[in-house]
Design a protein around this nucleic acid. Structure first.
Lengths: 212, 212
DNA sequence: ACCTGAACACCGTTCAAGT
DNA sequence: ACCTGAACACCGTTCAAGT
C-alpha cells in the first residue's frame, strides 16, 4: 500500500467509520485464513491503525465475531425469504426452495456458517440483536411450515417439531458440505445443489418405502 | 497436589504413558473450559511436566485434537453399532435407533462433537486413522439403509443419497441441540430424546401430508 | 472524542542442553 | 530415550498519555 493510500484510510477513520472498516478487514482475513485464525491485532494492522484502537469500537474480539454472525443471519434470512416468495402459492415448493437457499448460503459462505453456529461465540444470549437475527431466519422456515399445514400439504404434527426437522435437515447437510465431510467414496462427486435437491426430496416424502 | 503425587506422576511418564496422560488431561480441561480454550501449556502444567515435553509425543496441538476426535468417532461408532444390533430384523427401527444413538452421543459429549466436526482440525485428511474412524461411523448408517432397501422397507433411491439424508438429519439435530440453538419460544422445553424421536419419525414418513 | 505506546499475562513451537 | 529452560514470535486486553 502506498503512503497516500494509508493517509486516505487514516483520514477516513476520523470520519467515524473505523468500526465498519475493522469488520471489513476482519472478513477479508477470515476469507483467506479461516475464522479461527483471526487476530484482532492483524485486523488493526490491515486497517492501518494501532491494535489498541479496536477497543474503542468493540469491547472484545468475540463481539467482532458476533457482528459478523449477525450479518450472516441477516443475509441468510434474506435468501430464505426470497426463496419462499418465489412460489407463494405452493408451500411444499417454498419449503424445498428455502432449504436449497440455506444450503447454497452455507456453500457460499462456509466461514460465516462456522461463526454463526460454531463455538467461537461462547454465548449467543449475550448479543440480543444476534439472537433476534437468528430467530428471524428460523421464523421464515416456520412460516412456510404453517402455510403448508394450513393448506393441508404438510403433516399436522406440532409445528415446532416439523420446523425443527426441516431446520435440522438443511443445517446438517449444509455443515457436512461446508466442512468437507461428505465422503465421495470413489463415486463421482455430486454437486452440492444436486445433493440438496435429492435430500430435500427425501425429507418431503420420507425415507420409508411407500406402501404398495 | 502433594509433592508425593507429583513424584508418582513423574515416575509414570518415564514408563512411556505420558502420551496417554496428556490426552486425559486435555479431555479434563476441555470438559471444564471448552475445546477452543485448550492450551498445550496448560495440559503440560496439569500433567506436571514441562510444556516442551508435549512435543516429544505430538507434533503439534492439532494432532492432540485429532487423537481426541478419533476416539470420539470410535465411541460414536460403538454406540451406533449397539443401537443397530438391538433390532436386527427391523431395518427401519434400526435406522431410528441409530439416529437416537447419534443424538444421544452429541448431547453427552458436545465438546467431542465440536472437535470431530468443527474447524479446530484444519484438514481431516492429514490424519488417516481419523478419516478411517469417521467413515466407520458413516458405514454403520449406510449398512442400515442397505438392509432396509433389501427388505423393501426403505425407498429405492441411490443408497448414498438416502444415507446422506439420514446423516444430515441426525447430525443437524445433534448440533442444534449441542450448541443450544434450539429456541424453546415460550413453550415447555422438550427433552432431547423426545425431540430426536419426533424428528426421526418425520424423517421416516416425510414432512408432506399423506395423500387422502 | 478518538487514537497510541508500553505493559501484562498469556500462547505455540523450536532447540540446544541436560540425565 | 526422554525431559527441560530459555528463547522467539506471536496473542487479547488494559491503561495512562497524547491530539
Amino acid at each position: 500500500m502506498t503512503r497516500k493510500a494509508v493517509a486516505v484510510k487514516r483520514r477516513a477513520y476520523h470520519h467515524g467509520d473505523l468500526k465498519n472498516a475493522l469488520v471489513v478487514a476482519a472478513l477479508e482475513l477470515i476469507a483467506t485464513k479461516g475464522a479461527r485464525a483471526l487476530s484482532l491485532r492483524e485486523v488493526a494492522r490491515a486497517t492501518g491503525v494501532s491494535h489498541a484502537s479496536t477497543y474503542r469500537h468493540f469491547p472484545n474480539k468475540e463481539s467482532v465475531l458476533a457482528t459478523i454472525a449477525e450479518q450472516g443471519f441477516r443475509e441468510l434470512t434474506q435468501r430464505m425469504r426470497d426463496a419462499a416468495l418465489q412460489s407463494p402459492s405452493d408451500p411444499l415448493k417454498s419449503l424445498h426452495r428455502v432449504g436449497l437457499a440455506y444450503v447454497a448460503f452455507g456453500v457460499a459462505h462456509p466461514h460465516h456458517l462456522q461463526i454463526m453456529f460454531g463455538d467461537l461465540i461462547t454465548s449467543h444470549a449475550a448479543y440480543p440483536s444476534l439472537l433476534e437475527a437468528s430467530s428471524a431466519a428460523f421464523e421464515i422456515l416456520a412460516s412456510c411450515v404453517r402455510a403448508g399445514q394450513k393448506a393441508g400439504l404438510v403433516r399436522e404434527s406440532e409445528e415446532r417439531l416439523v420446523s425443527l426437522a426441516a431446520w435440522s435437515q438443511v443445517h446438517g447437510l449444509a455443515l457436512l458440505i461446508a466442512s468437507g465431510q461428505i465422503a465421495p467414496k470413489g463415486s463421482a462427486p455430486l454437486q452440492p445443489d444436486k445433493l440438496a435437491d435429492a435430500v430435500l426430496y427425501l425429507l418431503q416424502t420420507g425415507l420409508a418405502a411407500p406402501r404398495q
